[in-house]
Design a protein around this nucleic acid. Sequence first.
DNA 1: CGCCGACTTGATTAGATTCAAACTATGTGG
DNA 2: CCACATAGTTTGAATCTAATCAAGTCGGCG
Lengths: 240, 240
Amino acid sequence: MPQTPHCSSCPVRVTAICGALKDDELKALSMISRQRRIPAGQVVFSDQDSSRFFANVLSGTVKLTKTMPDGRQQIVGLVFSPDFLGRAFSFNNPYFAEAASDVELCCFPHDAFESLLKDYPSLQHRLFENTLDELDAAREWMLLLGRKTAEEKIASFLYLLARRHHVDGCANQQSVAASFELPLTRADMADYLGLTIETVSRQLTKLKTRGIVRMVSSRQMEVPDSAALARVAGAEGISN
Amino acid sequence: MPQTPHCSSCPVRVTAICGALKDDELKALSMISRQRRIPAGQVVFSDQDSSRFFANVLSGTVKLTKTMPDGRQQIVGLVFSPDFLGRAFSFNNPYFAEAASDVELCCFPHDAFESLLKDYPSLQHRLFENTLDELDAAREWMLLLGRKTAEEKIASFLYLLARRHHVDGCANQQSVAASFELPLTRADMADYLGLTIETVSRQLTKLKTRGIVRMVSSRQMEVPDSAALARVAGAEGISN
DNA sequence: CGCCGACTTGATTAGATTCAAACTATGTGG
DNA sequence: CCACATAGTTTGAATCTAATCAAGTCGGCG
């Protein structure tokens, strides 16, 4: 049985696109929403099927992937906790969305949501800004994929996670030793960074040996000096 | 002296974002517009400076680049003829825009244009759809940069150009031998594809030797069998 | 206990980069 | 008009980074 959503107690109420809505608009949105849990490894939606929907990610990580006929795969986007999932204004969604971990979603049926987009300019505007940010991120990643070395790629990814302090709990001071869990397997990291599993593993141990990171377990990372990590990451780690 | 724009005779009137506008709205937009010519190699706008504007590209090619401190560069977007140039709703533009060829622009001052965006939902919506398409393209390119071989990268790029039948003149039948000019130097192709100049050159001669393309000159290409090119390009050349 | 998936490590190979040189087209000044 | 400079391009040889192939280790779970 679908859970009734309670926006008032929603963990992403303010940070998600809902933050752009006035009370009555939020109510209309909540009317069409429905929470769903999706276990790790399951398909959220395929680039093939038509049963499409939009969603806010409440917890967990969703990966958007592109696959070539021969099986080569690239993760083209990671969707974390307050982020929005779905491609508006397109008949067929061009990505394959898969749960990288157990995921909680707040789902909106495709047509109902798009009609709300029409009715609420502030919602559309928020989604627009969202999309612009995604585009910036995608282009940043193009620099990584096209020009960075394996070591820089790994460091960039870890630095990205450290900044998002992807912890689900303990908040960190600015630029203090960060501790976070890797939301992806080695295989997924490889697909995100344009590498192989083996190279990912080797570069991680290299960073460990160099003292840039500590690995509590294969998934649990600690970064004693985030500036050092940023330096290894190569670029624009200077700003931001 | 700035040329007075005449939307009625504009080559991109319908295809550009202007196509979303009603007559009176178009008039308001044309009031703030101003045509500019920018010679090849010149900076259109920098990721540093604040003197920003938006523009429709009337002719020529603009490249959006990201550069690392040590000089490594990646082209993260190519802006062709009816496309729109500029990043809305952001104080500082994150890309460096440079004319890859002589370029004609129809420019709009930053603030005036953003206020029009507020006033004309249809304009904002058009720009939103535009941005979604750019995001799709960026992610498609992520697959190329992360997973394709040098040969597939080159073939994909040529196939992209063939589809856009980037000719400035002779229109081509669907899926018939295409002839087009490369809008980029070898160095720029390398920066777009995440390769070196030498590899680009080698792969081009390889495609030439295999009979996939003919090279009338170093810039003028002919594709006898676009399906064969698509096959070499690797992926999703099947659709579209 | 032993299986299984995720991860690590080692040896070898291949594809692309790097370094180096030469070729082509275009434009300039003597 | 030709010699020469220059930017863009091609080609060759050597090198290196990351991929591939191949074992092995770790950790959880039936």
